[in-house]
Simulated scan of single mutants.
Amino acid sequence: MFRSYLRLLLFTFGLLAGVQVPGLVKDYSQRVEAHMLESREALAGFQETAERFFNGDLQALVRHYRTSDDPVFNSDANSIESLVIRNQLLENEWQALQGSWASRSWHVLVQADPQLREETLKGYSYQILLVPEAIGWGIASGFLLAFLVESVLLGIGWVILGGRRRAVKESWR
């Protein structure tokens, strides 16, 4: 009986943990989009300058600033370059989040930008989304957790008992 309750408890815990994945992916996607729009806005003025004088090439604008004798321009070159690098990172993250729900989930769980993932986790509030992805993640996580823990416990029991089964006494007679 205890084993059945343990299995049920593990399944429930896995289910509740699994349904969090789509919410986390959604929050991460919204955070990436917000940062990307902010990054585009920060680069807009420099992009206009690059369009006017360098055929839209921001790297050419940065090189022009670096070759200037003015220390202010040299400093600004570093600032612009960091904005360009950040914008490219966010654009790449955004592109990675445009695939199927499975690829988005995999990206957020395994390949996401550590800083953005940490920021998302700090601001994340637990939620239960009733969408097919959440239901799938919940059932799969619950089953997998219950199966793995029960298998490990049965394996430990098998090792301790030396692979033998204990004789079960029939007490009902």
Rank of each mutant, 00 (worst) to 15 (best):
T120Q: 09
Q30K: 11
T67D: 12
G56F: 10
N74A: 10
G138A: 07
R52A: 15
F143N: 05
H64T: 12
E81V: 06
Q20D: 04
V19L: 00
L109V: 03
R86M: 12
V131I: 14
V168E: 01
Y28P: 01
P22N: 10
A17L: 05
R86D: 14
A34S: 13
S4N: 11
S4E: 11
A112T: 09
E51D: 15
L161H: 11
W94S: 04
A42T: 13
A167V: 14
L24N: 04
R173H: 09
N87K: 06
L83D: 12
F54W: 10
K169I: 11
L109H: 02
T120I: 09
R3D: 08
G138V: 04
S100T: 05
L121Y: 03
A140M: 05
L15G: 01
L37R: 14
W137D: 04
W137K: 05
S171M: 11
G136Q: 00
G157E: 04
V131K: 05
H64V: 06
L15K: 03
L97I: 12
V21G: 00
S29Q: 14
S68Y: 04
E41Y: 12
G136Y: 00
N74Y: 07
Y126Q: 13
T12M: 11
A134N: 02
S151C: 07
L129E: 04
L109A: 13
V32E: 00
E93N: 12
H64L: 07
V168P: 00
V62I: 14
L8S: 02
F54N: 08
E133Q: 02
P132G: 06
G142L: 09
D70R: 10
E38S: 15
R31A: 14
E38D: 12
I160Q: 02
T49D: 11
V72T: 13
I85M: 07
F13L: 15
R165N: 12
L6S: 11
Y5K: 11
V152G: 05
A44C: 03
Y28I: 08
F54S: 06
Q30D: 14
N87H: 15
R173T: 06
H64N: 13
W101T: 01
A96S: 01
Q115A: 13
Q98F: 00
F13D: 08
F143S: 08
E81L: 12
G56E: 10
I160H: 04
W172K: 11
W158N: 13
L10G: 01
L109G: 03
V149D: 04
A112V: 08
D69A: 15
L121H: 01
L130S: 07
N55A: 15
Q127R: 15
E118Q: 15
I156F: 06
A17W: 03
Q98A: 08
F143W: 03
E33N: 05
R104M: 02
